[in-house]
Write a protein that binds this DNA or RNA. Structure first.
Length: 347
DNA sequence: ACCCTGTA
DNA sequence: TACAGGGTT
């Protein structure tokens, strides 16, 4: 898989915690991030995604429905799913690179299937996952029927999520990627999953995953840099909008920022390798395209509509959809109880 | 990735 | 109650 987002892992100050620690919290979820994860991994043994009777892919609906309803019912979380809009022009090259990688993976997948090598086929298939327009429309329809709010961002979803978190409309942004920190989210939560493990198809094994909380202010003060310097640092390492400088990883970039303060003040020979688009990239992170018109309130479950959609149109089994309905009803009654007692309010 | 059943 | 392994569409 082509790596997404900024690579900050080696210098990140994270705090691992459990789902129980996050009870009652609200999150702006990076929708494309989770949908791609579901599309990649929810597959039959041979790598075929789940599909309805008409051949429409449903893996992302299965994943999103069962995960979100569980986080909402068992942990009292409030989720708002945020979807990417139009990417900034500078991202185009990155988008094309990913498209190319997918085409290559599709070829290797077909070849592995024809050889009967299903382990290899699966590991290739997970790299072919595509979110289509119909897949996105289905996702929004599902969320609306469940009563879970969603926001269509005008630009980058991570920018929108960061804005919502910095306004206090949600407690944290949730994504695997670090970009929302650059966009200014006060808190980033990684790995908001139920199973606590992630399957690594290329390695054929699972890895333990715990929710990770990164608090921007603490993270920056620990590094001794400002958000502006974190952005400059990321430009040196590489972002969704530029390639990054060969030989400069997060640790070297951090040293450079501490010593010189900003891209402009870098030594001549380093400065020469910085992309001339760096000011545009800074601006994408510091002043992104967002909308202020959104609603994070939970709506009522449309049970009849949900059954009609998932069972009638997308080949879900009634028993499993009943599970979803029960969870949302449980969550709703828990909410009215805490409202009645007068507790449980938080951003 | 999550659900569910069988097993100890 | 914890885990393994097959099923989900």
């Amino acid at each position: 898989m082509v790596p997404l987002g900024v690579l900050l892992t080696p210098i990140i100050a994270k705090k691992t915690l459990s789902l129980d620690d996050l009870k009652g919290r609200s999150f702006a979820v990076d929708g494309f991030n989770v949908l791609h994860q579901f599309l990649a991994l929810i597959r039959a043994r041979d790598g075929t995604p789940l599909m309805d009777s008409e051949g429409r892919v449903t893996s992302h609906l299965v994943g999103l429905a069962f995960r979100t309803t569980r986080l909402v019912s068992d942990y009292g979380m409030k989720l708002v799913i945020v979807f990417d809009g139009r990417p900034p022009e500078l991202k185009q090259r990155e988008v094309e690179k990913r498209r190319e990688a997918k085409r290559k993976a599709e070829e290797e997948y077909r070849e592995a299937v024809s050889r009967g090598d299903y382990a290899k086929a699966y590991s290739k298939a997970v790299m072919t996952g595509r979110l289509t327009r119909e897949g996105l429309d289905d996702t929004k329809r599902l969320l609306t029927l469940l009563g879970i709010p969603w926001v269509q961002a005008p630009g980058e979803g991570e920018a929108q999520a960061a804005y919502m978190a910095s306004r206090g409309d949600v407690w944290a942004a949730n994504s695997r990627d670090y970009d929302s920190l650059l966009f200014g989210t006060p808190r980033l939560l990684r790995y908001l999953t139920i199973s606590g493990e992630e399957w690594l198809p290329s390695k054929g094994r699972a890895r333990r995953l715990e929710p990770e909380l990164i608090e921007l202010e603490g993270f920056l003060s620990e590094l001794g840099i400002t958000r502006e310097q974190l952005i400059d640092l990321s430009i040196l390492v590489g972002t969704d909008f530029n390639e990054g400088i060969k030989g400069i990883g997060p640790k070297t970039a951090l040293k450079l920022m501490r010593r010189h303060g900003s891209i402009e003040e870098l030594p001549e020979e380093t400065l020469a390798k910085v992309p001339d688009t760096y000011q545009v990239i800074r601006d994408i992170y510091l002043d992104p395209e967002i909308t202020e018109i959104y609603d994070v309130e939970t709506r009522e479950l449309d049970e009849e509509g949900l059954v009609g959609f998932l069972c009638g149109e997308r080949s879900f089994s009634p028993r499993r959809v009943e599970t979803l309905v029960k969870r949302m009803r449980a969550a709703s009654s828990q909410r009215s109880l805490t409202d009645y007692i007068g507790g449980g309010r938080n951003a």
